[in-house]
Amino acid sequence: MSLASQSFAEKVEPREGAGNEGVKRFKAPYLIYFGDIELTGYAKTGLGLIEWRRNLCIGQYRTPQCSIDSGLPDMTIEEAVQAGVGSFVIGVAPAGGYIPDRWLQDLVKAARAGLDIISGMHARLTDFPEIVEAALASGARLFDVRTPPADLPLGTGAKRTGKRLLTVGTDCAVGKKYTALAIEKEMQARRWKADFRATGQTGVMIAGAGFAIDCVVADFLSGAAELISPAADDDHWDVIEGQGALSHPSFAGVSLGLLHGSQPDALVLCHDPTRVYNLGTERKQPYPLHSLQETIEANLLMARRVNPDARFVGMSVNTSQLPLSEKPALFERLSAETGLPVIDPIKDGAKLIVDRIEKEFLL
């Protein structure tokens, strides 16, 4: 058995036909591990996986100290093995991305039972000899989702066949992943050829393919984005998960690399109307968000460097922190300001945006 921590370079391979056939690498179904986490924000990996791939998730594993309840049945590792679980997924992402010592006995037990371990943490599973030993003994595989491939190409900017949509934002953590997934869902409901292309660790777990692009060395960002969305049928859409924001002083680099490498035909602007400053800058040096028009213009300038026909087709707004009564007026104002259809991907789905894509590209 080959145990070395497996990156996801090999998870993005040439398509077979129109869809994602042949690129899935995780062994389903999954047992989601929440450990002893108490804050919902730290459980976004597992909750996101359950939200979008519920059919693959069979149960949750929690310690008595855990206050997160995803609604899945609680299972022991023994029960999971009997139920045919294939993978033990670390469903949490605490600050710092470390794996605390108190989790090791659970991870070792799962690996010893033959369950693959899937982790999106900054800490590597293979840094823990006891986990490695247990996996070697049972034949379990260890997947470190945040390990980038070692042989990424430089971006070329060469035109590729197929269509691509990239979600971009006024800030980081404004719903780019959920927006892309909602668009993929709506496209597939219309029987379009469409695939969600993951660029972050939670997205990789949802898609079963891709890699965390923010771990890639800067010179290879655009090449990584080209690899994630290779040439396809002319009527196939890659719906690419965006990262960061061009205006964010910390994360603009990965956003630009994705814009150039994705070569998007269509862009969707993601926004949180409750934000005033770029996330994480509030205390030391606050950076006000750019306006919607500034964000649109900056992204179009960079996108049109590699695709002169790039255009915005919609706006996605996270309204989770707003009173429901404020939503209609807000959406009317934002649509008038941008000229774009506006959705909340969780509450509304992506019908209006896909309607716009159909009008712009198919009719």
Rank of each mutant, 00 (worst) to 15 (best):
L104Y: 13
L104T: 12
L104E: 13
Q105R: 15
D106G: 15
D106I: 13
D106E: 15
V108Y: 14
K109N: 15
A110L: 14
A111G: 14
R112I: 08
R112C: 10
R112L: 14
G114N: 06
D116R: 11
D116Y: 10
I117F: 10
I117G: 10
S119Y: 10
S119L: 09
G120R: 11
M121V: 10
A123K: 08
A123T: 12
R124I: 09
T126G: 14
F128N: 07
E130V: 12
E130K: 13
I131D: 09
V132P: 14
E133R: 13
L136D: 15
L136G: 15
A137K: 11
G139E: 07
G139W: 07
A140N: 08
A140T: 05
A140C: 05
R141V: 11
L142H: 12
L142S: 10
F143Y: 08
F143R: 00
V145S: 03
V145T: 03
R146F: 09
T147L: 14
T147S: 13
T147D: 13
P149V: 06
P149Y: 09
D151G: 04
D151F: 06
P153Q: 04
G155N: 12
G157P: 10
K159R: 12
R160L: 10
R160M: 12
R160N: 11
G162T: 07
G162P: 02
L165C: 00
L165F: 01
L166V: 01
T167V: 03
T167R: 03
V168L: 01
G169Q: 04
G169M: 01
G169E: 01
G169W: 02
D171E: 02
C172N: 04
C172D: 02
A173K: 03
A173P: 01
V174W: 00
V174T: 05
V174M: 04
K177E: 04
T179G: 06
A180Y: 01
A180D: 05
A180P: 04
A180S: 07
I183V: 09
E184A: 00
E184R: 06
E184K: 05
E186P: 07
M187R: 10
Q188H: 11
Q188K: 13
Q188M: 06
A189K: 09
A189D: 07
R190Q: 07
R190K: 09
R190C: 03
R191I: 11
R191P: 03
R191S: 11
A194T: 02
D195E: 05
D195M: 02
D195K: 02
F196I: 01
A198L: 00
T199S: 03
G200A: 04
Q201G: 04
Q201A: 07
T202C: 03
M205K: 05
M205F: 00
G208Y: 00
G210W: 02
G210V: 00
F211L: 10
F211A: 00
A212P: 01
C215H: 12
V216L: 06
V216W: 09
V216F: 07
L221A: 13
S222Y: 14
A224T: 13
E226Y: 14
S229H: 07
A232P: 10
A232L: 08
D233K: 09
D235S: 10
H236R: 08
I240Q: 02
E241I: 00
G242W: 05
Q243L: 01
Q243Y: 01
Q243N: 03
G244N: 07
G244A: 02
G244I: 01
A245D: 03
A245E: 03
L246A: 05
L246R: 04
S247E: 05
S247D: 05
